[in-house]
Write a protein that binds this DNA or RNA. Structure first.
Lengths: 173, 173
DNA sequence: CAAAAAAAGGACGCATACTCCCTAAAACAA
DNA sequence: TTGTTTTAGGGAGTATGCGTCCTTTTTTTG
């Protein structure tokens, strides 16, 4: 694999549960919460892609469709905010979904700055068909946890998201 | 904000803790583990950027420097694997760090396919200076949790990452 | 009412994180 | 040794997720 051997415990094998030697020092990657969260996010994207293989839709795209499913229409900013992405990122996602015919976009009559986005009948059908695959991906992510741990995990992660909401570039609510 | 009102509970306000009406149905975004993980990852990137404002380094870049800090040298693939990113993503990150003089790269003598990557003295200094900021970002992420919850959270997230490791495009170990 | 502030969106650029396809080099097998 | 397969890396293309600068439109304020 490598021509030169690894000498430290930064790898997963050497890391394990007891990575912090002195207090809270985050010496190796597996003791850094942010690192683990990034890895878990990667994994969820992977699981989602696996379950939705033929559909070719991403988690964020599905989240947008989910929000619009139960709404008459939303401007791009509100839509982006409610799925928790940046305004400019959201605009890109919307553009692709419009191109695929899953969303429709029109200039607002009452506020000519705003684009009103709606889900199309095709988009609605798509959501109906994809929901089981999405749920399988969600379940596989937390499957390694016990029943009790799953609720606990959701509680804790919600607490962190709510408390640090303003730190994100796409604060919600 | 919007010209048309939101009618459903997909938003954060209506969501809360009791989002699942029938069994495990993930009806609203705040009940979807994958969604919450994506948000938490966003937040960590935001916190990291905030703490390291003047340094202009990302979490993945710092992870790479961290790994190379304790190692003689690594080929690009091994380096990417040990920080948990895809081979091609890793190559891009390395390219930027080389451009900034924090890493050095040379063709291996023993295997002329491989690029051996090393941290430069400047990179080493950089890591030393940045570590406190990185640790502040890590601490702020889990600060909303109680002392006991923090260890529990790390346990659980490690369990999920290890069990689903192969689902990611950048499996480790 | 006119000037200023705010808000929505577009356009461009950067960084992560993949895909697929390609070349070159090494390892392995017949 | 001669093929075949594996491995390392590069290049092109796509998607998220941000920043910044800019225009247009609306709202607010003096």
């Amino acid at each position: 694999m490598a021509t030169i051997e690894k000498s430290t415990g930064e790898g997963p094998a050497a890391a394990g549960k007891a990575g912090r030697e002195h207090g809270v020092s985050y010496r190796d990657l597996w003791s850094r919460p942010g690192y683990l969260v990034r890895r878990l996010h990667q994994i969820h994207v992977g699981l989602f892609a696996e379950e939705c293989a033929d559909k070719d839709l991403t988690p964020v795209q599905f989240a947008m469709l989910s929000v619009l499913y139960g709404v008459q229409g939303l401007d791009q900013f509100s839509l982006s905010t409610s799925v928790g992405v940046d305004r400019t990122s959201g605009a890109d996602v919307i553009k692709r979904l419009v191109r695929r015919g899953l969303l429709a976009r029109e200039r607002s009559e009452t506020d000519r700055r705003a684009n009103i986005v709606r889900i199309t009948p095709a988009g609605r059908t798509f959501v109906d068909q994809m929901r089981p695959a999405m749920e399988r991906a969600q379940n596989r992510l937390i499957e390694p946890l016990s029943e009790g741990e799953r609720d606990l995990f959701l509680e804790m992660i919600r607490k962190m998201v709510e408390a640090n909401n303003s730190a994100s570039r796409a604060p919600m609510g």
